[in-house]
Simulated scan of single mutants.
Amino acid sequence: MKTIIAATNFSEVSNHAVAFAADVAKTIKARLIIFNVIGLVPAMSDARLPLEACDATIEESDKLLKELFSKIKARVNNEIEVKILYKVGSVISELNALCQREKPFAIFIAAQFVTAFERFILGTYAVSIAKYSAFPVVVVPLSATMTGFKKMAIAIDFKLDSSVEWRFLRNWLKLFHPQVDIVYVTSDTTAPANKAAMTINVNAQLKGFGLRYYFLTNDNVVDGIKEYIVENKPDLLIMLVNKHRFFHKSVTKPFIEAPSVPVLFLSSKFKSNVMSSAFERPGPATDTSK
């Protein structure tokens, strides 16, 4: 059984990401883990929180998590398994530990995290989660509505497409049967002339998915992708993030912090062979203890 992890800090945007993840989980019959981390060390500080403040925060988190659990169970009409889990500690380490145990199909987080208790927020770590996770990360804007992912766009560098995790992409696409747009942005005005040669491997890897190609000339990759989104309105954008290849951090960051559509990130640490359990075997029982 596939597992989806949805992280929340109980802000409007993060709870919306959880609801969006629930809709996806219902669509593909996956189980959903709603996850919250209470940080003992406020962001940008080495000072630990007083024990009284920790206790109050744990109690409030427990209450909010149970309320969110009830709303999500009603949203999915009890058609899928929903678990809740919170941990006290480091956001990055606790989320990584959970992912290593569960081998999730995807992690869903909000595009922005803003709460009255900013020192506790998960959003401080959103960029790191999306760019360095060993598992797929979907960043969800507040405006997003799950309509079945009927159209997906894959932003790719054809010069390096041999490094793409094609196996995962094929498995992901098979679940939704979307129209697939391949988007290539370059400042080289001669690139479109070479498009036939550039598409050979992509056609072979994604045969049967009804591919459409968009070769866009723009000196700014971010602007080029944004223009494509405005004109074509995909339900999901897929970006492949690599430390030395594909998109530099200056390109991916705007799509993490302020995406106009949901964006699926595959980082340089992601390897599709660790995802076999997400597609082939039931996942382990989830610890719902506090």
Score class of each variant (00 low, 15 high):
Met1Trp: 00
Ala7Glu: 06
Thr8Glu: 02
Ser11Cys: 09
Asp23Thr: 12
Val24Lys: 14
Thr27Tyr: 15
Ala30Met: 06
Ala30Phe: 11
Asn36Cys: 09
Ala43Cys: 14
Leu49Glu: 11
Asp55Arg: 15
Thr57Tyr: 15
Ser61Leu: 02
Leu65Gln: 03
Glu67Val: 05
Leu68Ala: 02
Lys83Pro: 00
Lys87Ile: 02
Ser90Tyr: 13
Gln100Met: 12
Pro104His: 05
Phe105Pro: 08
Phe105Gln: 00
Phe108Leu: 05
Ile109Gly: 03
Ala110Ser: 13
Glu118Gln: 12
Arg119Thr: 13
Phe120Val: 12
Thr124Gln: 14
Val127Asn: 14
Tyr132Met: 12
Val138Met: 11
Ala144Met: 01
Met146Asn: 13
Ile156Pro: 10
Asp161Ser: 09
Phe168His: 13
Leu175Gly: 04
Leu175Pro: 00
Thr190Gly: 10
Ala193His: 06
Thr199Arg: 14
Phe209His: 11
Thr217Leu: 08
Asn218Gly: 02
Val221Tyr: 05
Lys226Phe: 02
Glu227Trp: 02
Glu227Ser: 11
Lys233Met: 07
Pro234Met: 03
Asp235Leu: 07
Phe247Asn: 01
Phe265Ser: 03
Ser268Met: 04
Lys269Ile: 04
Phe270Gln: 03
Asn273Pro: 00
Val274Tyr: 13
Ser277Cys: 08
Pro282Phe: 01
Thr286Gln: 05
Asp287Gly: 05
Ser289Tyr: 11
